[in-house]
Amino acid sequence: MINLSCWAVPIRDGYVLRADQSAVSLFGSAPARNPQFWGWSITVVHPQEPMFSAPLARRAAIFAVDYLRHASDFKTFRAVGNRNWWTERGLGFVLILVSGGHWVPALAGIWLLVGHRWLRRLIGLDAGISSVPVSPTQEPRIVSEVHDGLAKIGRAIDGIDDVLVAYAAAATYARVEGLEQVAEVYDSLAGGVHPAQLDPDLGFWVGNEIVHDVSRPALPPPCDEHDSSNSDLSEESRTR
């Protein structure tokens, strides 16, 4: 299984769920891995022990991770081999220009321009890494764990009355703790953005009244979630 992590960033009226940056590299490398490892094990890291209703945490974490999966689908590693593209092509072009009809520089120019790439492709040396879209092949496993840094931040913002000041302070605390991704969420909230209007890049808001009420999950029950993750995402967008 792929071990993913998801931040549950504490805010005044709930949490913002955001997948950790490591999900980008994990999903980026997943197409090259054996599909039997395409299952997800998501750890939701949160500030205090008993804050989440399990169904909701499960849904929200899958949303956050799934968003990053779609965002990273096209960020594979194709660009690695193209680092010298311009120097090779440029020199090849110059060699053809100055060849003046001589076959040797012209041959070298053609070799640099297209020759070696064509030959590599012909003999199958540049076989690309599989770019099959990754989707979980097993039921996602969700667990939650306490994060001390988030707990400190949660306690800090509880003691400040003004919401925007609290978020600004929380951003500072988060940076002190080395939690840059968490700080980005607070920065946005400190700018006056309502949690419901946060950019999906920054996370998904889960309000307090639904966090604590297991009988009122914010979303439909978690059936077929990994088979219909696309529709889930659009459904979430409509809800918000």
């Binding site: 994990l26 764990e145 994060h147």
Partner: peptide
């Protein structure tokens, strides 16, 4: 380290390891 911190470190190391393998 809290278990949440361990989980974050583990995810990042795993991501790093497999990215390295792809490269």
């Amino acid at each position: 380290l809290s278990r949440g911190e361990q989980a974050i470190i583990r995810s990042r190391v795993e991501g790093d390891l497999f990215t390295n393998a792809v490269r």
